[in-house]
Amino acid sequence: MPRSRPARWTRSAAATPWVTAVATPGRMLGWCEALRRFGPFFLADVTEPAIRDASGGFRMTPYQQVCVSESAADVARWGNGQTVSAGGVRIQPGTGLVTGDCAETLRSIARKGPSRIAAHAA
């Protein structure tokens, strides 16, 4: 298990803050377009496992904990402290993490389609 992310994943201080980056909404739009063009699955079916994990929780792996720790200042700056700590204590590997806001965003996109992505990315 790597102790940290590979150097190619490390961003410089001058890079756009991750929460305002285009990768996440752009990736979701790409998936929506691929499903629309090529099928054979529906967006709601494809997003269901992620919605289930976000709403029901999942256990943090050691790798995820390292990633969260490395980005803790950025995450806290953008107001989603639940992914940084639970009751002020850093989330440790094996800890269950529920991300209800993420689940609701995915539900909204699954119900209303890619037009919801811009509303959630703004």
Score class of each variant (00 low, 15 high):
Gly96Arg: 06
Asp53His: 08
Ala44Cys: 11
Ser108Tyr: 04
Gln92Asp: 09
Ala34Cys: 00
Met60Gln: 11
Gly113Glu: 08
Val98Met: 02
Ile109Leu: 09
Met28Pro: 06
Ala34Phe: 01
Trp18His: 08
Ala23Trp: 11
Ala54Asp: 07
Ala21Tyr: 09
Ala103Arg: 05
Val98Glu: 02
Arg52Lys: 02
Thr99Leu: 04
Gln64Val: 11
Leu35Phe: 08
Ala50Ile: 13
Gln64Gly: 15
Ala103His: 09
Thr83Asn: 00
Ala21Val: 10
Arg77Ile: 01
Tyr63Thr: 15
Pro93Arg: 03
Gln64Glu: 15
Cys67Gly: 13
Ile91Gln: 05
Cys67Asp: 12
Gly26Thr: 14
Ala103Asp: 12
Gly113Asn: 10
Ala110Cys: 02
His120Leu: 09
Gly96Gln: 06
Glu33Leu: 01
Ser108Glu: 03
Ala54Glu: 05
Gly30Asp: 07
Val22Asp: 13
Gly79Glu: 03
Cys67Thr: 13
Asp101Ile: 03
Gln64Thr: 14
Gln65Arg: 15
Ala54Ser: 13
Phe42His: 13
Ile91Cys: 07
Ile51Gln: 05
Arg59Glu: 13
Glu48Phe: 04
Val66Lys: 12
Arg90Gly: 05
Arg111Glu: 12
Ile51Leu: 07
Ser71Cys: 13
Thr95Glu: 04
Leu35Arg: 08
Ser71Glu: 15
Arg116Lys: 06
Gly100Pro: 07
Pro93Tyr: 04
Thr105Pro: 06
Gly81His: 03
Pro114Tyr: 03
Thr105Asp: 06
Gly57Glu: 15
Ala110Ile: 02
Gly79Thr: 00
Trp18Ser: 12
Cys32Ser: 03
Glu104Val: 03
Thr24Trp: 08
Ser85Phe: 00
Leu43Arg: 10
Met60Lys: 05
Arg77Asn: 07
Val19Pro: 04
Val66Ala: 14
Ser71Trp: 08
Ser115Thr: 08
Phe58Val: 10
Thr99Gly: 06
Val84Ser: 03
Pro25Phe: 10
Ala54Gly: 11
Asp101Ala: 11
Val19Glu: 11
Cys67Gln: 15
Arg37Gly: 00
Met60Ile: 12
Glu48Asp: 14
Gly87Phe: 03
Gly94Ser: 01
Gln92Pro: 03
Ala34Met: 01
Val84Phe: 00
Arg107Cys: 09
Arg107Lys: 11
Gly56Met: 10
Ile91Gly: 08
Val75Pro: 05
Cys102Arg: 06
Ala118Arg: 10
Ala118Val: 10
Gly94His: 01
Ala23Asp: 15
Gly88Glu: 06
Ser69Thr: 14
Glu48His: 07
Gly81Asn: 04
Phe38Ala: 04
His120Ser: 05
Thr20Pro: 04
Ala21Leu: 10
Phe41Gly: 13
Asp53Leu: 12
Gly39Cys: 11
Trp18Ile: 09
Ala110Tyr: 01
Val98Leu: 01
Asp53Ala: 14
Gly56Ala: 13
Asp101Gly: 12
Arg27Lys: 12
Gly87Ala: 06
Arg52Asn: 07
Val19Thr: 07
Leu106Met: 12
Arg77Lys: 04
Gly81Phe: 00
Trp31Asp: 02
